[in-house]
Design a protein around this nucleic acid. Sequence first.
DNA 1: GTCGAGTAGGTTTTT
DNA 2: CCTACTCGAC
Length: 668
Amino acid sequence: MASSFSFDSLNKAQREAVGALDGPVMLLAGAGTGKTRTVTCRIAHMLEKKIEASEILAVTFTNKAASEMRERISGMVSKKAAEAMTVCTFHSLCVRILRGGIDRIGYKKNFSICSHGDQVGMMKQLLVRKGGSDEKVKPDTVLSEISKAKNKGIDLQDMKDDYFASLAVAYNNELRAQNAVDFDDLLLLAEKVLREHSDVREMFRQRFTRVTVDEFQDTNSLQMQLLQQLVGGPNYHVCVVGDDDQSIYGWRGAEVANILQFEKFFPNPKVIRLEENYRSTHAVLHTANSLIRHNLGRREKILRSTRAGGDPVRIVAMPGDDQEAEFIAEEIMSEKGAVGREWEDFAILFRTNGQSRKLELAFRERKMPYRMVGAQSFYDRREVRDVLAYAQLIASPEADVPLLRVLNAPNRGIGQATAVLATEWSRTHHQSVWQALCDPFFTAELGSKSANAIQDFVALIAGAKNRIEIAKENPADVLHGLIKEIEYIPWIERGCKTDNERQQRGEGIHSVIDSLRKSCEKGKSLQKFLDASALASEKEDEDLEKKQGVTLITLHASKGLEFPIVFLVGLEEGFLPHTRSIAEGTKDEERRLLYVGITRAQDQLTMTYCATRIKWGQETGCQPSSFIGELDDEYLLHTTYDEILGAAPSTDELDNFFGNLKGMLDGG
DNA sequence: GTCGAGTAGGTTTTT
DNA sequence: CCTACTCGAC
């Protein structure tokens, strides 16, 4: 099958990008300029030019972006070609590299990947061990410093704070002892393997001759180094795609410098700008442009809208956050009825997750459907982590973290005290906790009750392992059988307060087993499944599109999405820009965040701010965001809650009101 | 070893 | 205001 795109359907810049297959290419793609379409056409074009599909690699930042790109490409090229190419995230690419070659740097190939929860658990223990029980440093604080150090290439011993440095070293030793790696290690160690072992490096360079990196503005320096190892050949057939104005992950180490100084890494790149915006009305885009102009040191871009005019962008002053939520709910309700919009056409964007509560409440009161995107992580849910821990344990019993997690879940008479003894034994004997449990010299030191319980537990896990590895049974069946045997579900249900919770937990457990089954049906190993689960932090694809309703979403999570009607709430100093970012001197990034939010809107945009907000049961005063003053007034409509309610009790009148205003603006 | 009540402390964004 | 964790009683 020939690829199904035509150059005619692309604009000039897009055509140029699709045609430029060789050498380093940097595609500066502003919001809504058809970036994904261009990239996928470019890849389809590679196939037309007889480049082997298996040599094509596309790296994205999130799982969602990866699966979306995979899908878009699948629609354009043959099934065979689509399957032969590699589209994945940085992290899963690294897992692939490490599963093949981590033994070169002294790890065992069956290493396990720590989730954030695992890291916190480990750090808590270290904090107690090092700092005593009245330790006031938070695990998250230390972990985020460690993460920053790893991503910047700083040796952990050289971290600024000596105490943190010692914690960091202890943390890494602990990981090492457990043959485990954290998220940052995936990048760090993969880069190390490629850098230090030329045979592995050459293998990958020959395997992937065409590399595309999406959302390049979000890459950090470690990812940049990794990329250099990956495409070090003289031809540099690398294409990076991004928009420095949408760089909003600086707090996680993203280096805008990567995009601003791309030439330094890959000389003489072809730089192509996509500046024609097909998404938003002129009014929305003009407002966005007027804001982002205030940032210095950008790759200058002028986004042009293909959609003239448009409704004015409203800035609405609210008395309080209750009214803000109610106003939005009411307006969406009447707008939907009046203009025949679908619930899915509306989105509400906010800075922090906590801001969604009042909105949810207002929606629930009115029985309006809504969907929260990426709120609580599916994989952070207790029952999901427990079941995954069992799966992980079956795959590699020597992994201490999952073992300790489920050792007494459900309760089987192996309590905290016994767990501590086992951990200490394993440490003094330089072996895993699993080995301690299997060691007759260890169990001999325990009471007979604990010893028996441990024996049963060991038999349980070893039995499951054998059923998969020796008897070649389906891992999903084995896991399901194990969960049933230990009566895990009744145990977790006993701890539930509501029926709803009970049902949710049951569903969580079954969905883990189901996805394991699906993964097995595709011929993937248990280990592959575990890797994918470790890297997937949010509830996956299906329910995002499947769920109906108004979208409630953080500004960060909204990047890459678009909605006909957007509400942006909480435009207050301290929220947007956030207090913390002002303290850290990253107000530019907050401005980009708001820019991202504004450019999500296709037809209508409303931004709101409150005079007061309830905080911890206390009413506190708020100041409008300083960003509001930076917006160009040409298409703005400043108004208030009272004005709108007073002037327009019905939707028709509301329409007329704005229709007239629009007329006045257009005319004047 | 488990459960309940009481209290202290806390809100940025996430692979 | 809400939660998540500690500490005391079974």
